[in-house]
């Protein structure tokens, strides 16, 4: 705030400067003070997220402590889940979560990479844009709507078109297809998760494929490679770290999917070998039983499951972030 040196109209001398504390501080320093306050406030804002995160861990951990101390390590190895008798073992849920998520990944990654290759290499613009838009739309659909569709459309379809024929034909030979075709099963859970994570994996795959330098592609083609050979030998290897990072991100989402999975997986705390049998995931048991949990041990056991789920998704997401971060750094160097 510069001092006003000009005279007021009429020739009167300028008014004497106000005698205040602020006037004693030179103007440059005053700007600095405001900036310092601003800077400190901003740093404080930065603390919000880590504090919130830490608070989250604290709350859940505190509630889970009872179960942790009661069951110890046996919690993750025991497969009996019996709220009535007080036996709580998380193994069925860990099993269901891991099997459904990895199966979903096995379905989603080839589809996503195929889609990405189609969009970057093959599709003309008039086709690529609507398909890309459609893929993004898939990401905007709420989980519960997927679940609704899953119950009334996907499950009956899977049961009659895939499970029944396969279980009849190969059920005796391949244990994964054995047993009655339940419909509401681990397979349905995996399929619906895979549909939900394809947009994320393919978005990353598309980005890294588009970043493959043109002259690398041209070098291969000029040597007489077919388009597919060029894609397989040159473009995909170049894009591989990014695709892996995207896949791990997809895995992270798959592990935490709740509503759609709960609505189609059957919710039976078993460890079935057959994919056609019902299963149960950690997220699903929380969704189903938390509101009705009676008794401190029951509640705490569910809390411990929440803690385990939290931990697993944490590790997977950090891994994915590090990979994606590494890939983007390398892209800048290339």
């Amino acid at each position: 705030m510069a001092s006003r040196a000009e005279t007021t109209p009429g020739g009167a001398p300028p008014a004497a400067p106000k005698k205040s504390l602020r006037a004693l501080v030179p103007s440059r320093a005053r700007g600095n003070l405001a900036d310092q306050v601003y800077g400190t406030l901003l740093q404080g804002c930065g603390l919000i997220l880590p504090l919130l995160f830490g608070f989250m861990i604290l709350q859940i951990g505190r509630e889970a402590w009872f179960a942790v101390s009661t069951f110890g390590g046996g919690f993750v190895t025991s497969s009996s889940w019996n709220p009535v008798s007080g036996e709580f073992g998380a193994l069925p849920f860990i099993y269901g979560t891991i099997v459904s998520s990895f199966l979903a990944l096995a379905i989603a990654v080839p589809l996503s990479v195929g889609l990405a290759i189609f969009l970057t290499e093959l599709a003309p613009l008039w086709l690529a844009r609507p398909i890309a838009f459609a893929t993004e739309l898939l990401a905007a659909i709420p989980s519960v709507v997927y679940g609704l569709w899953g119950i009334f459309v996907l499950v009956p379809f899977l049961r009659s078109t895939i499970q029944e024929p396969l279980s009849e034909a190969l059920g005796g030979v391949i244990p994964f297809f054995a047993g009655p075709a339940y419909g509401f099963s681990i397979l349905s859970g995996a399929v619906i998760i895979s549909i939900m994570i394809v947009p994320f994996i393919s978005a990353v795959a598309r980005e890294v494929l588009e970043a493959v330098p043109r002259d690398q592609r041209e070098a291969a083609l000029a040597l007489g490679a077919t388009r597919w050979e060029m894609t397989w030998h040159v473009a995909l290897p170049y894009a591989l770290p990014g695709i892996i990072g995207g896949s791990i991100l997809g895995l992270g989402r798959a592990l935490g999917e709740t509503m759609a999975v709960t609505m189609v997986i059957g919710n039976r705390p078993d460890i079935p070998v057959s994919l056609f049998a019902p299963g149960y995931t950690m997220a699903s048991v929380l969704a189903n039983e938390f509101a009705e949990a009676t008794g401190d041990l029951y509640l705490s056991a569910l809390m411990e499951i929440a803690l385990i789920l939290f931990g697993i998704t944490l590790v997977v997401n950090v891994l994915a972030q590090l990979l994606v971060w590494r890939v983007s750094k390398r892209g800048g160097q290339a």
Partner: peptide, 21 residues
Amino acid sequence: LVADVMNGIPSIVVGIFVWAW
């Protein structure tokens, strides 16, 4: 990093956290 990780927390875990709090 914390923000990105928090974006990946399953929504049910968030619900349970807020319940406890």
